[in-house]
Design a protein around this nucleic acid. Structure first.
Lengths: 334, 334
DNA sequence: CTGTTAGCGCATTCAT
DNA sequence: ATGAATGCGCTAACAG
């Protein structure tokens, strides 16, 4: 039925070892023999069985990546970076969606490990002790992608979320705003949530502006929640003149909520956020935001993983990529 | 180093066959023995090796999916549907990006087959003879997802693109528009390109409206090209009062081009398209569009694939999912 | 219900 | 430069 290395060997009149050699590009094969083998392969339509090869060599040339939400444009941008580099180093990707559920994250980590991936890329939210526990049982390298663990025990690549948020709010303050509302992510999320809130807080405190409870509201990162939270802000007696949103999506939601109430952005309300998803430049007014190098986060983390898998020793196992303010049209003077 | 089924067998005082049975949930094991084995597994931290299992059983419980562009929101929506159902049937996904390059598509199909996937989902643009050729060498089922081959020889799930386009243009005509421009995709692309153009043409012809060359322009599906093409339309002496765009992204680009020239949408210009990506309801005015059930396309095709892999016989191997007009705010009377 | 025995298709020593 | 032999970790008859 299926044609194996044995069949090829017989067809070419050589041993299976020789066939294995030519398939694996081993130089110790006479060119003529190599030719014979290739012809036999062609004739028989032989296709190497990567599973058998994986069992024998203990390498699968595939890496697992766990992704919190494949339909979120941030992650799919990052995934592109991962894919490109993986492809460059001839790795394939087993992509597992984890629905942002911790339990499912742990589960897929384990099935990925069962599949004998050569390495693991983890793009999750929080890295808990349970995660660390699961990682510890792995005999292959792991790198965190767009997140970090508190203790910095696992290699990772990410931006400095607090600093990014700080820069965003700082820009608002520089424009004379003092009544600055924040649409935050959940504070349980260390990266996009808590860290970005910390950056907001730090910028205000440093400018001597009090951080008040009524000016901070938690959303769920999505457009709709940005819209809802903005409606709340609009009803405040002393409403903010500027908004810092933890994500672009929420910022866009906020802009539309304001516009739907007849406000002009940025004239009546300034809005800034963090991410720079593609949509940020596809809305009117175009969104001013702090760009996160999503493609690079994916690419760099995959590159780091290839080094680790290759047992090269890496100097920096925790890399922080730079962010950058993209000034567009959603921020104006107070 | 690695603990195998053998070690567990020894530790539990049973044979490896028994261990295999409990791991595979074979009912023919005395509860007590089962318990002993589980304890041994726990104690040793045994983790089954899916590669070895794959070699022995000739099943890998993974399916390959080739995707033209992972960063395109349409495909990532579809991927979500695929993932959900795959997960439900305990399959993992090897996701391969093909950069919309035919050559690379063929290449990844082959490596996926080498990896012994149990089935293949192909989300590509055109299905050429070379594709068919590659598919033919596969001994596992394949289904096309969001595309079709001309000869209907491969199982597929998709919408009727021509009909969707027809309905969109029909709506414009129903609103009294006669000067209707089209921002098309490349006519080489049978689904999103040619078929949608055919629908446009058919609707116009049926209404007795001539199809003119200057009212049809080709874009590349993206926002920017919609923007550019719209600028062209705006400069026409007898400019269209309505636009049918082959994709939402191009439609949004068109809307912004019009707005940037001071036109009001939909008062001065109506715009409709096909897709219904998330962004369609996140722009102002919200986009009227023909919804393509992206999640379902993914889910149904994966479900179909599971049936095929399971050798159930399926009645309809070519399924056409319904589309639906979503009336929002970008279309008005002529 | 449990154990024995063969492979699955290939990489990899070790000889030659 | 090539071949013979061994085993990777597991499933799947088959036997008992």
């Amino acid at each position: 039925m299926t044609v194996t290395i044995y069949d090829v060997a017989r067809e070419a009149g050589v041993s299976m070892a020789t066939v294995s050699r030519v398939v694996n590009n081993n130089p110790n094969v006479k060119p003529q023999t190599r030719k014979k083998v290739f012809e036999a392969i062609e004739r028989l339509g032989y296709r190497p069985n990567a599973v058998a090869r994986g069992l024998a060599s203990k390498k699968t040339t595939t890496v697992g990546v766990v992704i919190p939400d494949i339909s979120n444009s941030i992650f799919s941008e990052v995934a592109r970076g991962i894919e490109d580099i993986a492809n460059m180093y001839h790795y394939n990707i087993i992509l597992c969606n984890a629905d942002k559920k911790k339990e499912k994250e742990i589960r897929v980590i384990n099935t990925l490990l069962e599949k004998q991936v050569d390495g693991l890329l983890f793009m999750g939210g929080t890295v808990t002790d349970d995660h660390l526990q699961a990682f510890k049982t792995a005999s292959v390298p792991i790198v965190l992608c767009g997140t970090t663990d508190d203790k910095d025990t696992i290699p990772s690549v990410d931006i400095d979320h607090e600093s990014a948020a700080y820069d965003a709010v700082k820009l608002l303050i520089g424009q004379g705003h003092t009544k600055i509302g924040m649409i935050s992510g959940t504070l349980q999320d260390p990266a996009n949530g808590y860290a970005r809130y910390q950056g907001y807080k730090k910028a205000l405190e440093q400018a001597g502006i009090p951080v008040t409870e009524e000016r901070v509201r938690v959303g769920n990162y999505r457009y709709e929640s940005g819209y809802e939270v903005m409606k709340y802000f609009l009803e405040l007696s002393d409403r903010p003149t500027a908004i810092f949103a933890a994500t672009d999506e929420m910022a866009i939601g906020a802009i539309h909520a304001a516009q739907d109430q007849g406000l002009k952005v940025p004239d009546d309300l300034s809005v800034i956020s963090v991410d720079n998803i593609r949509m940020a430049s596809m809305v009117r007014p175009q969104l001013t935001t702090v760009a996160q190098p999503m493609y690079d986060i994916g690419a760099v983390s995959m590159r780091l993983l290839t080094k680790l898998m290759n047992k090269e020793n890496v100097e920096m196992s925790k890399v922080t990529l730079p962010h950058e303010i993209i000034q567009r049209k959603s921020v104006a003077h107070a």
